[in-house]
Write a protein that binds this DNA or RNA. Structure first.
Length: 439
RNA sequence: GCGGGGAUAGCCGAGCGGUAAGGCGACGGCCUGCUAAGCCGUUUCCCUAUGGGAUCGGGGGUUCGAUUCCCCCUCCCCGCGCCA
């Protein structure tokens, strides 16, 4: 949620932000209208309450002195009825205002590239040595802007789907039968590769000073709505029938809600967490996209970075989270590029976002594996997470970043490390945990 | 799931129909060679703000007035039951 004081005192900031997002400013105008109506009603209602409180105190004194207070009592009752009318109207306008206030997108960072959609996302960094099949070279050079090393693959890389099914490391047909499309059974050594990857990732984060956390995998509506915009997110969430519970789409949400309605001490900050959890997503509206394999699925495990920091530190922690993710993919030996996400593609919550996109040789494409967002105070205001600063209480800033989403990272390892015979080389850093060098 | 006991400010904790004691911590100030002690103030949210309103787990009710009485819900503690 944005700061309502900006709406009152500097609405031009919001109009400007909406323009840079290529979004309508109707929502800002509507919010201003509802807010001023609300304040007018509140003023009237508070004045009546002041009158009534005065009378009630008088009644107390009369009764203590042993006098008769009947006439003044009826006067108080009459004011009470009046207050009731105003309160009803006030609550109506208030909920209308709050609903729209929560829908106003976060203010975009002035440094984010301005464009109306993802075609304006800006590749800004390249690392690693990619394996590219000869017919894909042209596309690779374009996507890497000629700034990335590569070597020609001597064979046509197989897609992870073919590879996994042939090697019996996954069964997608059975999963489709018992659960539906976009589910999977992982089998054999691939399971060990996943758990090794998780273990490595958790150890990595702990060494970086992050507190490891396994959060609840379900949240109630209130917490979900605090962590994200519920009305916008509802379609992606699985609801538990007959309960006020939703399966989480990412551990970002339960971790964000961890300090719900809390005033932290300044010396507690920064609070750094690394979450591990399964993520459940309906992927509605993704029909036809990545339908094969385990790249886009309804359920996957993910290690997530999350930070609560002082406002002045959020920019530098945004870089730190991104740096951690870079170091992680470097350690795994996966070639990648970093993309600065355009204003029109940010989503409502982020003020600035960087994605890490790994190179997938079989798809001959860079695809998202990490998304690192600076949310500023947008989430903290919804969740009422504050800290006691020198000049009074202030909202903290929150940041989140993937470290590794298992399915996508596994696919990246499989596609990049495959040999001509379909075996998969285990990344060096996982060999000791795995107990083998090749699957 | 059943029975009993609870939830009060950042934390602890009194009040149990007349409008939130006290303590601790934190912050600011005074005092002081320094530190400590002591003293004063601040310490939740909202409002067009030397003022006013709201707030005692949440929601409803009774009353001129509810932290206090009644109803519903949530969570925590103790016992019993069930259980991977």
């Amino acid at each position: 949620m944005i700061d309502v004081n900006i709406l009152r005192k500097n609405p031009e900031i919001l109009f400007d932000s909406q323009k840079r997002r290529f979004q309508s400013d109707e929502i800002i105008k509507e919010a201003i209208r509802l807010d001023s109506e609300w304040r007018e009603l509140l003023r009237k209602s508070n004045n009546l309450k002041a009158d009534k409180n005065k009378l009630v105190r008088e009644i107390g004194e009369i009764i203590r002195a042993g006098g008769n207070s009947d006439s003044i009592k009826s006067k108080a009752s009459e004011i009470d009825r009046n207050i009731g009318d105003y309160e009803t109207k006030l609550r109506e306008i208030e909920s209308e205002r709050d609903l729209i206030l929560k829908k106003i997108p976060n203010i975009v960072d002035p440094e984010a590239p301005v464009a109306k959609d993802d075609s304006g996302n800006l590749p800004i960094y390249f690392e690693g040595r990619a394996k590219v099949f000869e017919s894909d070279v042209e596309g690779f050079v374009a996507q890497s802007m000629g700034k990335m090393e590569y070597e020609i693959s001597r064979f046509k890389p197989q897609s992870h789907v073919d590879l996994l099914v042939k090697r019996n490391l996954a069964n997608l047909e059975s999963a489709a039968m018992v659960s539906g499309s976009r589910f999977y059974y992982l089998l054999g050594s691939l399971v060990l590769l996943e758990t090794s990857l998780e273990h490595f990732a958790l150890e990595f984060m702990q060494k970086k000073g992050f507190t490891l956390v396994e959060p609840p995998f379900m949240l109630n509506k209130q917490a979900t709505d605090g962590a994200t915009d519920f009305t916008a997110f509802e379609d992606t969430l699985y609801k538990i029938e007959g309960e006020d519970l939703y399966l989480i789409a990412t551990s970002e949400h339960p971790i964000a809600a961890f300090h719900y309605d809390t005033i932290l001490e300044e010396n507690q900050l920064p609070l750094l967490y690394a979450g591990i959890s399964p993520c459940f997503r309906k992927e509605a509206g993704a029909h036809g996209k990545d339908t094969k394999g385990i790249f886009r699925v309804h359920q996957f495990n993910k290690i997530e970075q999350f930070a609560f920091v002082k406002p002045e530190d959020s920019k530098s922690y945004h870089q730190k989270l991104l740096e951690n993710a870079k170091e992680f993919y470097r350690a795994l030996g996966i070639p990648f590029r970093i993309v600065d996400i355009a204003t029109g593609d940010l989503g409502n919550v982020a003020s600035r976002k960087f994605d890490i996109e790994a190179w997938y040789p079989a798809q001959a494409q860079f695809r998202e594996v990490v998304s690192a967002s600076n949310v500023m105070d947008y989430q903290a205001r919804r969740l009422k997470v504050r800290y006691r600063g020198k000049d009074g209480n202030a909202y903290v800033h929150t940041l989140n970043s993937t470290l590794a989403a298992m399915t996508r990272t596994l696919v990246a390892i499989i596609e990049n490390n495959q040999l001509e015979d379909g075996s998969i080389v285990v990344p060096k850093v996982l060999r000791e945990l795995m107990g083998k060098e090749v699957i």
